[in-house]
């Protein structure tokens, strides 16, 4: 089977495509039971996902505290963002965390996946997959609290450093504004990325053996095989994880919230946490909505760039 045979032009899709000459209403009526069944879910998604988002967009133009205060201020909240020192200080922190997350997502789990994929022993492949995925059952809050303990002055990190004679660099890692953000990056070391690794592995296992055999006959082994054959053929997964990491990196604030509360000072503050505090502690819902809207636009923009300019080989073949 050639790459072209595997392209995204399956006959099933063509067979299911509605006939162009049918009216929309006729097509809907033809599948009315399917529409009826999907309606409750779609309605709830609209109600609980899209409606709040639309309300947030609307409210971002208001000085709104959720109850009492409700005054239209145009772009007032957005101009406040430009003068909010906490928010401004949080942006470099977010970018550092995001770039680090992207680097990790694109390296460690991918490397693990390739190594497992290349193992000849199928049973060993299976057990390693299990080994990597089992830690995923630990609730993330537990993991975060464990790492908070590891980073404390009497925690595991300092115990190890003292044991190897590096007493001089021990410190309260989360209590030092110079190290707190990097300590947060360290959470989850060695960042094996159970689910991410599984997705990469699934992509790799989907590569036809004949293609690998042909590449091997042509002398493509080791890194050459990875760069020329394996990586291009799992670019769909890579692209997916770039998007998910960007979305997660911009939205996520659980690590700084649980570990440091954004401190010391604002050394671990991120925009999403600033938004959370604006809403829940300062009760400035309009301002929080404005931050949320800007975050959404940034995520949307980066996702678009990713979709537009990072193209996968499989999709290329599909055209």
């Amino acid at each position: 089977m050639s790459l072209a045979d595997r392209s995204l032009k399956p006959t099933m899709q063509t067979a299911n495509r509605p006939k162009e000459d049918q009216s929309l209403l006729a097509r809907i009526m033809k599948s009315k039971y399917l529409y009826l069944m999907v309606l409750p879910t779609a309605g709830l998604v609209l109600l609980f996902s899209y409606l709040p988002a639309l309300i947030a967009i609307y409210r971002s133009f208001y000085m709104w505290d959720g109850i009492r205060l409700d005054k239209f201020i145009g772009f007032g909240n957005f101009s406040t963002m430009l003068q909010d020192p906490v928010l401004l200080e949080s942006i470099p922190n977010m970018l550092k965390l995001l770039l680090f997350s992207l680097f990790i997502t694109l390296t460690v789990p991918l490397t693990n996946a390739v190594l497992i994929y290349r193992l000849a022993h199928a049973r060993m492949q299976y057990w390693l997959r299990v080994l990597f995925i089992v830690p995923a059952v630990v609730p993330s809050v537990v993991t975060i609290l464990l790492w908070t303990s590891f980073f404390s002055s009497d925690g595991l990190i300092n115990i190890i450093l003292r044991a190897v004679g590096l007493d001089t660099i021990t410190r309260a890692w989360l209590g030092d504004p110079d190290t707190a953000l990097y300590a947060i990056m360290g959470v989850g070391f060695p960042w094996a990325g159970g689910l991410t690794m599984l997705f990469y592995l699934a992509g790799l296992m989907n590569i036809p053996e004949s293609l690998i055999d042909a590449a091997t006959v042509d002398g493509a082994t080791g890194l050459r095989r990875f760069w020329s054959i394996e990586l291009p053929l799992i670019m769909g997964q890579v692209k997916l994880f770039i998007i998910l990491t960007i979305i997660g990196g911009l939205q996520n604030f659980s690590l700084p919230l649980i570990m440091t509360d954004g401190g010391p000072g604002y050394s671990t503050m991120v925009p999403a946490l600033r938004m959370y505090y604006a809403a829940t502690q300062e009760f400035r819902m309009g301002y929080a909505s404005a931050i949320g809207l800007v975050l959404f636009l940034v995520i949307f923009g980066l996702t678009y760039v990713n979709l537009r300019y990072i193209r996968t080989t499989v999709e290329f073949e599909a055209q």
């Binding site: 303990s149 404390s152 009497d154 509360d261 401190g263």
Partner: peptide, 13 residues
Amino acid sequence: WQSDFLAPPDTAS
């Protein structure tokens, strides 16, 4: 104060 007073409390200790 304790040396790591700027660090978050370690619930384990």
